[in-house]
Nucleic acid binder design. Structure first.
Length: 419
RNA sequence: GGAGGAUUCGCCUAGUGGCCUAGGGCGCACGAUUGGAAAUCGUGUUGGGGUUGAUAGCCCCUCGCGGGUUCGAAUCCCGCAUCCUCCGCCA
């Protein structure tokens, strides 16, 4: 939810953000009106309640003669209060609905437009110019005995897979490298629950436009998380944090579950787009004033991981229309996929400013001692999809795969994976 | 799955329809006292919302959450959540 004070003071900022996202501007004025209505309703109910309160006290002290008259007035007032409170409840509900309809206000500098309108910040590394036709990760991985998608489909359906033998070891190694790096950087490692309550899923903003992406357990009223961002954001919900020592950083290790509804036919080969994968995710709580710097740091840690697996990539500043509800800015690192001759997302770091924290009621105590809404950010350190980039970029002409140095300890010291 | 108990201002606790504008203790903060400290004394100490130029003042809400009864609810009634104990079931 956006800050209503910002909205009241400069509605034009919010309208400009909506324009850049290519979204409806009407919702901004609807929100302004709903805010106005709610405040009027609250003021009315408050003053009636105040009257009722003082009258109620007089009834208690009244002598018999006055009592009946006072009681009659109090009864009328009680009815008035009830009506005013009803109106207040209606106005509040309408405000929440209007509030939810407005996505986060983008940060200055975010490129306007849709998926294609990203700005490239930098390129790192060179796509290899080998003289053989690159195999794709499925062919490589299957031949090397690292993964098995056929049996994944037999057991669980399409977009499921087994990581087998050294493939499983390679993933564990990758995630372990990410964990080690995060812990060295001061993150607290967390293994979170992957089933969460509706209000937590709602609070992180995933039940809006992404609702069809989320697995839901109807019998238990729980949701399977698509990323550990969800439980990590919920971790401090309804709390007032001490952020005086700087940002609080958590690294979440979890399996992630996504329905991938509406992506039929996209990335159906291999393990690029799957229903279940593993991930190490960074999550930061900080003061809003620190959020932009923290965003750069998260990007830096992602790039450090990408350097460790030695794949070429580019960094993009994602366009406003492709940001999602909660993010005010998002940087993606896209690795080169030789089989596709294209850059594909490996990491994504979002600055959600106070948007997510406002919904989840996550605050911190400011220098003046008053509670303020915190900022939240998240970013990817490693996922199953990274195996795709590793296999494809490090493949040799004979179908073997060179193991990046950082991962060798996790595959028995092997420099090369061979059939 | 069944039975019982609990949930009050950071912590402990008092409170069975109007005197609760929620009392006391601990902790914490500030001040007094002191050469400095301990002890002691004093003051303050949940959070949200509205009004406002204001982090002043005033007003409303907040006793786990949501309803209800009543002129009036921490207190009575109903539902829910969480925690604890015991029984059963599963491992």
């Amino acid at each position: 939810m956006i800050d209503l004070k910002v909205l009241r003071e400069s509605p034009e900022t919010v309208r400009a953000s909506q324009r850049a996202r290519g979204e409806d501007i009407e919702v901004v004025d609807a929100l302004l009106a709903a805010d106005e209505r709610r405040r009027a309703a609250v003021a009315r109910a408050d003053s009636l309640r105040g009257e009722q309160k003082s009258l109620g006290k007089q009834v208690g002290k009244a002598r018999d003669g006055e009592r009946d008259e006072l009681l009659a007035r109090a009864k009328q007032l009680a009815a008035d209060v009830k009506a005013a409170e009803g109106e207040q409840a209606v106005a509040e509900e309408a405000l929440v609905a209007a509030h939810r309809a407005v996505p986060n206000v983008i940060i200055d500098g975010v490129p306007a437009g849709g998926e294609q309108d990203f700005a490239v910040r930098e390129h790192v590394g060179q796509p290899s110019t080998s003289d053989f036709a690159p195999r794709d990760h499925l062919e490589l991985g299957t031949a090397l005995g690292l993964l098995d998608t056929e049996r994944g489909a037999k057991v669980s359906g399409s977009r499921f897979y087994f990581l087998t033998g050294l493939g499983a070891q390679l993933q564990l190694g990758l995630l372990q490298v990410a964990v080690n790096q995060a812990v060295a950087a001061g993150f607290t490692l967390m293994i979170p629950p992957v089933l969460v309550r509706p209000e937590i899923m709602e609070g992180t903003g995933f039940l809006g436009e992404h609702a069809t992406e989320v697995y839901r357990l109807r019998d238990d009223d729980l949701y399977l998380v698509g990323t550990s961002e969800v439980p990590l954001a919920g971790y401090h919900s309804d709390e007032i944090l001490d952020l005086s020592a700087g940002p609080r950083r958590y690294a979440g290790w979890s399996s992630c579950f996504r329905r991938e509804a509406g992506s039929h036919g996209k990335d159906v080969r291999g393990i690029i787009r799957v229903h279940q994968f593993d991930k190490v995710e960074m999550f930061t709580y900080c003061r809003p004033s620190e959020a932009a710097d923290e965003h750069d740091r998260l990007l830096g840690w992602e790039e450090q991981m990408l350097a460790a697996v030695e794949v070429p990539y580019r960094v993009i500043d994602v366009a406003a229309g492709d940001l999602g509800t909660s993010a005010a800015r998002k940087f993606d690192c896209e690795a080169w996929f030789p089989s596709q001759q294209a850059y594909r997302e490996l990491t994504s770091t979002s600055n959600c400013t106070t948007f997510q924290a406002r919904r989840l009621n996550i605050r911190y105590r400011d220098d003046d001692g008053r509670p303020r809404i915190a900022a939240t950010l998240n970013g990817t350190l490693a996922t199953t999809r990274w195996l795709v980039a590793i296999l494809e970029n490090h493949q040799q002409a004979d179908g073997s795969v060179r193991v990046p140095e950082a991962l060798r300890p996790y595959v028995g010291g092997r420099e090369l994976l061979t059939p």
